[in-house]
Lab assay of single mutants.
Amino acid sequence: HNLTITQGKLFFHYNPKLCLSEIHKMEEVSGTKGRQERNDIALKTNGDQASCENELLKFSYIRTSFDKILLRWEPYWPPDFRDLLGFMLFYKEAPYQNVTEFDGQDACGSNSWTVVDIDPPLRSNDPKSQNHPGWLMRGLKPWTQYAIFVKTLVTFSDERRTYGAKSDIIYVQTDATNPSVPLDPISVSNSSSQIILKWKPPSDPNGNITHYLVFWERQAEDSELFELDYCLKGLKLPSRTWSPPFESEDSQKHNQSEYEDSAGECCSCPKTDSQILKELEESSFRKTFEDYLHNVVFVPRKTSSGTGAEDPRPSRKRRSLGDVGNVTVAVPTVAAFPNTSSTSVPTSPEEHRPFEKVVNKESLVISGLRHFTGYRIELQACNQDTPEERCSVAAYVSARTMPEAKADDIVGPVTHEIFENNVVHLMWQEPKEPNGLIVLYEVSYRRYGDEELHLCVSRKHFALERGCRLRGLSPGNYSVRIRATSLAGNGSWTEPTYFYVTDYLDVPSNIA
């Protein structure tokens, strides 16, 4: 807008934040220059609390790290170098490059900038070799853009010569660093050979998330399962459950009422301010606690030095998902009996873990797994792929695949051998790939016309006998059925096997 004052003059007093240069501009645009008398524009009460600059400061050096910015700028000295009290560095987070010096300023003089007072450097006698002032900004957020400017702080001049310097606002972004852990990993099994893994992005990506790394490792069953005799009275049979499938998407929606109208769909109840505040506090606490764990609990591995020492970490090797089922080394339970199943799973520490690289999504279907087997899954978020990966501390989750139908069934015939004193040795093959492992066998036998009897055969007993022995049988026709019990439950009964026990007292003698 054009402003013209045809008559009258300007009068400025007691404006401590208004620089004289701005008042002189007002004289020019209003056409009143030359009308004012000496005392109409006070030299001592206008701009006496402001830094009124008329020179431009330029930054000469900028260096960044993930949490620091090192700045240096060209030296500046007023005509009387004693008038320079120091520099004021202003900075704040700036997602967009549209910041002005006066953003967030209120009537009390406060604003949204963080201000650092910096002492002037030592003055050199040689004007050509003056030290460049600077400042190291610490405690910054990774991968965050900051708006920065600097200006001088000078003393009051009796001659009211307006001098000083100020830089333009520059924008500097800190470097990326390792992201925080992925949030809320959930693993479920939808079949006997697959596990579905879902997660949420890290709360602090500290860069642009480029991919996720998912490692999985087959877990050995508890050692007590191999040692305890679950045929003993009072000892509860062990059981394991597989990871249940995901709930429906509708039930997972946030901010939804727990109660549904019987007449149909209901609208979600909005969260109160107290609920939102509580969630923010919980989120802040979780982030602080995660940072504490990362800094205190997890110790970084030592990389190899120039002395030739090897990095103890196993090298990563990509495998196809079809090879995942046989990740671990199978060892027989008892070496003397080769027909026992290889369900003991000690994992070799030198073995390469299978892994998958996930790009542009937060889910993965891990296939080719062994049925009813526990897996430990390790999830890392990465925001750099080359020249070397920059990934987060791992988040861990466990899951067990679903049982395989008929995996616990005894394959092959049940054979028998009759000894003296009416002892019958029953023999059968253990299931080759049971659900988890076989903890015991149930032997059901009966003599024709009598009630059915049951015998429990422990895992250890089966390994020693290759089956079991029935003792003290009365003469007669017998039928026997056997079924295995694994961590997933009972298998199917075998087809009945028949044998006849004679009275050993009636056996004919070869003595003449």
Rank of each mutant, 00 (worst) to 15 (best):
S203W: 05
D204W: 14
P205M: 13
P205S: 07
P205L: 14
I209Q: 11
I209D: 13
Y212P: 00
V214A: 07
V214T: 05
V214H: 00
V214F: 10
F215P: 00
W216H: 02
E217P: 06
E217T: 11
Q219K: 09
A220L: 11
A220R: 07
D222F: 14
S223C: 14
S223L: 10
E224S: 14
L225Y: 06
E227H: 10
L228K: 06
D229M: 12
D229N: 13
D229K: 06
D229G: 13
Y230P: 07
C231M: 02
L232F: 12
L232I: 11
K233P: 09
G234N: 06
G234A: 08
G234C: 15
L237D: 10
L237F: 06
P238W: 15
P238F: 11
S239P: 11
S239F: 06
S239M: 06
T241V: 14
W242R: 07
W242K: 07
W242Y: 06
P244N: 14
P244I: 12
P244T: 07
P245L: 12
P245F: 15
P245E: 11
F246L: 09
E247F: 08
S248F: 14
E249Y: 05
D250Q: 09
Q252Y: 05
Q252S: 14
H254K: 13
N255F: 03
N255P: 15
Q256T: 09
S257V: 09
Y259L: 04
E260L: 10
S262A: 09
S262R: 14
A263R: 11
G264W: 14
E265V: 06
E265W: 12
C266S: 11
C267F: 15
C267P: 07
S268L: 11
S268D: 08
S268E: 13
S268M: 13
C269E: 15
C269S: 06
P270D: 15
P270V: 10
P270C: 02
T272D: 06
T272K: 03
D273A: 14
S274E: 06
S274N: 09
S274K: 07
S274M: 02
Q275K: 08
Q275M: 09
Q275I: 11
Q275H: 10
I276C: 03
I276H: 11
I276P: 08
K278V: 12
K278D: 15
K278H: 02
E279H: 12
E281T: 10
E282I: 14
S283E: 14
S284R: 08
S284W: 14
S284N: 11
F285N: 04
F285L: 10
F285V: 06
R286K: 13
R286G: 04
K287T: 10
T288H: 06
T288V: 13
T288E: 13
F289I: 11
F289H: 13
F289D: 15
F289Y: 05
D291G: 15
Y292F: 08
Y292W: 05
L293Q: 04
L293S: 06
L293V: 05
L293R: 15
H294K: 05
N295F: 13
V296N: 14
F298I: 11
V299T: 07
P300C: 11
R301K: 06
S304Y: 09
S305Q: 14
G306P: 13
G306S: 08
G306W: 07
G308S: 12
A309K: 11
A309R: 12
A309H: 12
D311H: 14
R313P: 15
R313M: 02
S315T: 13
S315L: 09
R316S: 14
R318E: 11
R319E: 13
R319F: 09
L321E: 12
D323K: 03
V324S: 09
V329L: 08
V329H: 13
A330H: 14
A330S: 15
P332C: 04
P332H: 10
P332F: 15
P332Y: 03
P332N: 08
T333S: 07
A335P: 13
A335G: 07
A336F: 09
F337G: 14
P338S: 09
N339K: 10
S342W: 02
T343N: 12
T343Q: 08
S344H: 12
S344I: 04
S344K: 08
V345S: 11
V345T: 09
V345P: 15
E351Q: 05
H352L: 08
R353M: 04
R353D: 14
P354C: 11
F355H: 12
E356K: 15
E356T: 12
K357H: 03
V358M: 04
V358W: 13
V359R: 08
K361N: 12
E362N: 07
E362T: 11
S363M: 03
S363Y: 07
S363N: 06
S363A: 13
V365W: 05
I366T: 01
I366M: 10
L369I: 02
H371L: 08
H371T: 13
F372N: 05
T373Q: 15
G374C: 14
G374L: 09
G374R: 03
G374V: 05
G374M: 06
G374S: 07
Y375A: 01
Y375I: 04
I377T: 02
E378W: 09
L379R: 00
L379D: 01
Q380K: 11
N383D: 05
N383K: 03
N383P: 03
N383C: 10
Q384H: 08
Q384A: 02
D385T: 03
D385L: 09
P387R: 08
P387M: 15
P387K: 15
C391F: 01
V393T: 09
A395V: 08
A395L: 11
A395M: 11
A395F: 08
P403W: 13
K406I: 12
K406H: 11
A407D: 04
A407R: 11
I410A: 08
I410T: 03
V414D: 00
H416G: 08
H416W: 12
E417A: 13
I418G: 04
I418E: 08
F419T: 15
F419Q: 04
E420D: 11
E420Y: 14
E420A: 06
N421Y: 08
N421Q: 10
N422R: 11
V424C: 08
H425I: 15
H425G: 07
M427A: 13
M427H: 06
M427N: 02
M427Q: 02
Q429E: 15
E430S: 12
E430R: 06
K432V: 05
K432L: 12
K432M: 05
P434H: 04
P434M: 05
P434G: 03
G436T: 05
G436S: 02
I438R: 01
I438T: 10
I438Q: 02
I438P: 01
V439S: 08
L440F: 07
L440M: 12
V443D: 02
V443K: 00
V443L: 08
S444F: 13
Y445C: 04
R446P: 00
Y448K: 12
Y448T: 14
G449V: 00
G449E: 11
G449L: 12
D450L: 04
D450Y: 07
D450Q: 13
E452G: 06
H454R: 09
H454A: 04
H454V: 06
L455D: 01
L455H: 11
C456R: 03
V457I: 09
R459Q: 13
K460P: 09
K460F: 07
K460S: 12
H461N: 09
F462M: 12
F462H: 11
L464T: 12
R466D: 13
R469F: 15
L470S: 00
L470T: 02
R471D: 09
R471G: 10
G472W: 11
G472I: 09
L473A: 02
L473N: 02
S474G: 06
S474Q: 09
Y478W: 08
Y478M: 00
Y478I: 01
S479F: 03
S479R: 08
S479A: 05
S479I: 05
R481D: 00
R481M: 10
R481S: 05
I482D: 01
T485G: 02
T485S: 10
T485V: 04
L487V: 08
L487R: 09
A488N: 13
A488L: 04
N490I: 02
N490V: 09
S492I: 11
S492C: 09
S492K: 02
E495A: 07
P496L: 13
T497P: 00
Y498G: 12
Y498R: 12
F499E: 00
F499I: 15
F499V: 11
F499L: 12
D503L: 06
L505G: 13
L505A: 10
L505K: 09
D506Q: 15
N510R: 14
N510S: 06
N510I: 13
